[in-house]
Design a protein around this nucleic acid. Structure first.
Length: 867
RNA sequence: GCGGGUGUGGCGGAAUCGGUAGACGCGACGGACUCAAAAUCCGUUUCUGGUGACAGAGUGUCGGUUCGAGUCCGACCACCCGCACCA
């Protein structure tokens, strides 16, 4: 038996160097093998990675390595989502440039990722802050502009009145600026948008084609797009008013006879027109504006209304309705105006109770007494039958909706139909302007004479100036002495560059297409992208289920329409992995401690190493720098080796769930790595020199070969289905069996068939673990005397005959309870099985001479005797 | 509030189609080796009763369908996630 341990610390860097020197992860676009594109969501270079970041890269790496062994030409690239606010914050703190911090972090993190032994094609590495990348993005922007997909309009931003700066939503904390603490105001600025709402229907329909996406993510996108079907209804305003009609959107036209008011959004044009002559209304609108933008605040906000004094005619002949301005009506959805039916909508009911408006129920619950039914504090929103509703009385809700639609489509107001069927989406256009420095400049020049003029293509990229300072609040591009001041490309007159930059979600909306291009090629190479897209397996956190994935889908569809890409959907397969969590530790003073500062005692308590002071152990949480519950990859690599870290990450917990990082777990992985090393050595020592395949195999060698071939077949399926934890369990199971075989073989001289089976078992085992523990596999592969690299070895060839057993053991149930089992030839017919079962002692005893009522024989599965 | 998911030993979890519940690992306990320890190896480990063969119970709760339910159906409980004044 080999007593020498596997030395990961020595072997891992050695193999990484060899992989690197031979360039085996470099991918060529002209490789004739079938393509497979694996991608993990690229990281933001925030500083250093901890082991919690590594899980999705390791999972992607297992898939990439496995697919290579199966004969695919695999693309597995890596890059950096490098623009963003944290770099600017770092620049403010250090009084330096965001790019310095960003590129330092990229260097650090690249080294850390390399440490994990990932099979990445680093030659295709990109950073979105590289001018060659964002220059192409500017070209895309201009193409969008030309196609009418990008446009400019006024929109509200968070404005910090002390720092005189625009704040991102995450910089607004409890309604106040994160630095100044000042109450944030809403201000209107002209900003750029992408017309994603026009694509709402196709983005919704496209979800049905994404069969390899989690249902959960598809549902979240479906809800986010939020399609609803309803009716536009135009109400005529009585008497003199700035507008003669008000158009509302409703999904409940059936409740029109229960309407008791109309409500306008504070931002509605009619509201604005009325407020111009009505200081009280203007003050009310101002009041509504002051409320915070956070959802929590909106939720708790009380309903507020302002009676405009206007009345509208009821389109179906009911009483005239008063028109209010109400804080709960959104300008961005529908028409910015609603009709209120308090009896059947909770918000309308709350409003009606506050302002003493009538509450008329028009939908009667099934079986309710119309004379007794009344609405108190809860609106009735369930099924029912229409009543108190004229021509709708007696109809079910869907029929009433239809009847109202038909009737109002037939009525006219000012020459147009009163009612019009309409589909509404929750999805709004994507505002991409950010009043920030560290982002992709929007390639537009504003000319007082010509308006916004695109930067000519030849002048792209519009580069960010390097000489900027962050010692004052606001966007340094705004106060740069020369950068923004340029001549208008159209008229040559003095003009000013757009100083807004793009939302960083734009950067991540096409990077997967950028990776398709070989190094040095044009950034968005249509032919290369057609070859590689869609991504076969995309892996990332579920926190990107909506925005990033929706924007990337929108970009891909749009780029296809513009002839730049050939697919509509970027990601054929999506997997959302769980987080790695770790216990937290605090000392007596409540300070967070790093795991390496803490020693856990056998009695369950924990103390601080060195000082022996007691430590409070908190529940496992997402690894985060602030709580110090992080484990650096370097520490694991030096202590146990990265294969142990990889193995542990894949073990036990299903990949979509959160997984707890523990000392015991990493030690278990270490033991297993050593066990594989030892078993491979043992197989070799027993088998001796390689032997030719024997003509016949005995029972012992056949059993071992069956197990090895089943292992390869099952792990293949497990990896295909990303069930890494199950794959790991199967490998464990196999090593238990292999160990038994080794112990048995030691008892005497090893026959040739057993020797062959032992070598084969070792070879299978090494290749099966190769995607998960690649360094160990290389070391074992060398020991086995195999030529080439394990990484480049083919996945074990499975002999189908070895996957089926010739006998099968069936459990025997009597009245549904397991009482015995029976081993029969796998080919036995149900009748033969039944005969054998009836002869069993336990069955004879249970039947006690009577005939069984029924016998159910499920071939290969179970037999149930009903006595 | 709306939508979705999850619930199995001390712990992480396994269980194609409804077919032996608890694979595999961790932990624990016992043993071998050792002067001793570490490492390694072997064994036990759902609960209850029994020395034991064995018997009974058991997959959040209650009920149902079925020869047979962790799996299907109905009601409920708990936790988690997403959205949230979307008319």
């Amino acid at each position: 038996m080999s007593t020498e341990r596997y030395n990961a610390r020595e072997a891992e860097p050695r193999w990484q160097r060899i992989w690197d020197e031979r360039g085996i992860f470099r991918t060529r676009n002209d490789d004739p093998r079938p393509k497979y594109y694996v991608l993990e969501m690229f990281p933001y270079p925030s500083g250093r990675i901890h082991i919690g970041h590594g899980r999705n890269y390791v999972m992607g790496d297992v898939v990439a390595r496995f697919k290579r062994m199966k004969g695919f030409n695999v693309l597995h690239p890596m890059g950096w989502d490098a623009f963003g606010l944290p770099a600017e914050n770092a620049a403010i703190e250090r009084n330096s440039h965001p790019g310095i911090w960003t590129y330092e972090n990229i260097d650090t993190m690249r080294g850390q990722l390399k440490l994990l032994g990932l099979s990445l094609d680093w030659s295709r590495e990109i950073a979105t802050c590289d001018p060659s990348y964002y220059g192409e993005q500017q070209r895309i922007f201009l193409a969008f502009l030309k196609a009418g997909i990008a446009y400019r309009r006024e929109s509200e931003v968070n404005w910090d009145p002390v720092d005189h700066t625009v704040l991102a939503n995450e910089q607004v904390i409890d309604g106040r600026g994160w630095r100044s603490g000042a109450v944030v105001e809403r201000r209107k600025l002209a900003q750029w948008f992408f017309r994603i709402s026009d694509a709402a229907q196709e983005l919704l329909d496209g979800l049905d084609t994404l069969e390899r996406w989690p249902d959960k993510v598809r549902l979240m996108q479906r809800n986010w797009i939020g399609r609803s079907e309803g009716l536009h209804v135009r109400f005529a305003v009585q008497g003199p008013a700035p507008l003669s009609e008000i158009k509302v959107y409703t999904t409940r036209p059936d409740t029109l006879f229960g309407a008791s008011f109309l409500a306008l959004s504070p931002g509605h044009p009619l509201t604005e027109a009325l407020a111009a002559d009505d200081p009280a209304l203007a003050a009310f609108v101002e009041d509504c504006r002051r409320g915070g933008t956070s959802t929590a605040e909106i939720e708790t906000q009380e309903k507020m209304g302002f009676d405009t004094g206007l009345k509208v005619r009821h389109p179906l002949g009911g009483d005239p309705l008063p028109v209010y301005v109400a804080n709960f009506v959104l300008m961005e959805y529908g028409t910015g105006a609603i009709f209120g039916c308090p009896a059947h909508d909770q918000r309308d009911l709350d409003f009606a109770r506050k302002y003493a408006l009538p509450v008329t129920p028009v939908v009667l619950p099934p079986g309710a007494d119309p004379a007794a039914f009344a609405i108190d504090a809860i609106a009735y929103v369930e099924d029912g039958t229409l009543y108190q509703s004229g021509f709708l009385d007696g109809l079910a809700i869907p029929d009433a909706k239809e009847a109202v639609a038909v009737r109002l489509e037939g009525e006219t107001l000012g020459g147009a139909p009163v009612g019009e069927r309409a589909v509404n989406f929750r999805l709004r256009d994507w505002g991409i302007s950010r009043q920030r420095y560290w982002g992709c400049p929007i390639p537009i020049i504003h000319c007082t004479a010509c308006g916004p003029v695109p930067v000519p293509e030849a002048e792209l990229p519009v580069r960010l100036p390097e000489d900027v300072s962050f010692d004052q609040p606001g966007n340094p591009l705004d106060r740069h002495p020369t950068w923004a001041h340029v001549a208008c490309p159209a008229c040559g007159g003095p003009a000013r560059r757009e100083t807004d930059t793009m939302d960083t979600f734009v950067d991540s909306s096409w990077y997967f297409a950028r990776f398709a291009a070989e190094p040095g090629a044009v950034p968005l190479d249509s032919a290369a992208a057609s070859h590689w897209l869609p991504v076969d397996q995309y892996i990332g956190g579920v926190e990107h289920a909506i925005l990033h994935l929706l924007y990337a889908r929108f970009f891909t569809r749009t780029l296809k329409k513009l002839g730049r890409l050939s697919v509509e959907e970027p990601f054929a397969g999506l997997f959302t992995q769980g987080m790695i969590v770790h216990e937290t530790y605090r000392d007596a003073a409540g300070r967070w401690l790093f795991p390496e500062e803490v020693e856990k005692r056998a009695d369950g308590t924990a103390v601080r190493i060195g000082t022996e002071e007691p430590v409070t152990v908190g529940a496992p949480e997402k690894m985060s720098k602030s709580k110090r519950n992080v484990v650096p990859p370097e520490a694991v690599a030096e202590g146990y080796g990265v294969d142990c870290a990889r193995w542990f990450m894949l073990s036990d917990t299903p990949p979509e769930r959160d997984s707890e990082w523990t000392q015991a777990g990493i030690e278990g992985a270490w033991r297993f790595v050593q066990r594989i090393w030892r078993l491979v050595g043992d197989c070799l020592a027993l088998a001796g020199e390689p032997v030719a395949r024997p003509d016949a195999f005995g029972a012992e060698s056949t059993a071992l070969r069956r197990a090895a071939h089943k292992l390869a077949a099952q792990v293949e399926e497990d990896i295909e289905r990303l069930r890494f934890n199950v794959a790991v369990a199967r490998v464990h199971s196999f090593t238990n069996l292999l160990n038994d075989a080794i112990v048995a073989a030691r008892k005497g001289p090893v026959p040739a068939d057993v020797a062959f089976a032992l070598r084969e078992a070792a070879s299978f085992l090494v290749r099966v673990v190769a995607p998960m523990a690649p360094h160990l596999a290389e070391e074992c592969w060398t020991v086995l005397g195999e030529a080439g690299l394990a990484t480049q070895a083919p996945w074990p060839e499975v002999e189908p005959a070895l996957l089926v057993d010739d006998t099968v053991t069936l459990p025997i149930q009597i009245n549904g309870k397991r009482r015995a089992d029976i081993t029969v030839p796998a080919a036995a017919s149900p009748a033969e099985v039944e005969r054998a079962v009836l002869a069993l002692d336990a069955v004879v005893k249970a039947l006690d001479g009577r005939a069984p009522k029924r016998i159910i024989v499920v071939p290969q599965r179970i037999v149930n005797v009903v006595a």
